[in-house]
């Protein structure tokens, strides 16, 4: 089991007037090769949750396990954990600092203590993987466009060759074409054999891409399961300020109007076919 979390509770500044409970008894499992979506608002605790995946936030022993290693134990080698779990934060382009793209991407591998030849190989591969032109390697990251900068930042994490990649809102702030390209990139990273966890606000995006979803609300897991299982709760989701995909909304409306629509249906193709079945008498 790559990531296993058992009843994780996290309180910020305990014992002060600023005490805040960010997470309350959150449990989750992520299996090898899965594409997991985590959905929730600002302040739902999702940033705190993903910070636990690679030990940036520490828990008590016996709560957070990565590949069987207990991250709560004092003597756990954190660098080894960060080699396994790559974390791409929101707006990661703001963490770039080196003179050239190649040097910036090399930062992670260098911290892992790899030799120069290996670093060079990994940088070249990461640049290719995120779809940047090889000529970008010697440019300053600050000359690139916003979308390209973000790709450099993702390449910097991929160069550590994590087996689990966590991305917090990878498409935030991009234009529609940029969003599409970014989600394609995440999809291709997953297809290359990496376990992916994507934090997102967009039910459309997670519905299209993810195998399973966890919906966080006020530090607790409100719903979990396959997208279809989660989208069944459309009204509860709406109450906590999250929308189901448009097609799922249409399916509900049609069901209420006497159409025969399967529960939890949300993909456009499925909704289209269900409508056609209803109108053409099952043809």
């Amino acid at each position: 089991m790559p990531v296993e979390i058992k009843k994780l509770t996290h309180v910020y500044m305990p014992g002060t007037p600023f005490e805040a409970r960010a997470l309350n008894e959150v449990s989750l499992n992520i299996r090898d090769g899965e594409f997991i979506g985590i959905i929730g608002h600002t302040g739902s605790g999702k940033s705190t949750l993903i910070s636990h995946f690679n030990g940036l936030e520490r828990s008590q022993p016996g709560v957070v396990f990565v590949n069987g290693v207990d991250l709560g134990e004092k003597d756990t080698d954190m660098i080894a954990v960060r080699r396994v779990v790559g974390l791409v934060f929101q707006y990661p382009e703001y963490q770039l600092f080196e003179e050239t793209v190649a040097k910036d991407i090399a930062f992670g591998p260098r911290n892992l203590g790899l030799d120069e030849a290996e670093i060079e190989r990994r940088v070249a591969r990461a640049i290719e993987l995120v779809g940047l032109d090889a000529s970008a390697a010697e440019k300053s990251p600050f000359e690139l466009s916003g979308g390209q900068k973000r790709r450099v930042a993702i390449a910097g994490v991929l160069a550590m060759q994590p087996s689990i990649l966590v991305l917090d809102e990878p498409a935030a702030g991009l234009d529609p074409a940029g969003r599409r390209d970014m989600l394609e990139l995440v999809k291709s990273i997953h297809a290359s054999g990496v376990t992916v966890v994507m934090v997102s606000h967009s039910m459309d995006d997670v519905g299209r891409l993810c195998d399973r979803l966890y919906v966080l609300n006020k530090g607790e897991i409100a719903f979990s399961g396959t997208p279809a299982e989660v989208f069944v709760h459309d009204q509860r989701l709406h109450e906590i300020g999250l929308d189901v995909p448009e097609c799922a909304k249409l399916a509900r409306k049609l069901r209420e109007a006497g159409y025969d629509m399967p529960e939890g249906i949300y993909r456009m193709e499925d909704v289209r076919d269900a409508i056609l079945r209803n109108l053409n008498g099952g043809k």
Partner: peptide, 9 residues
């Protein structure tokens, strides 16, 4: 946090 995630110390 982001740099720590990249192994910075």
């Amino acid at each position: 946090k982001a740099q720590k995630a990249r192994g910075a110390n």
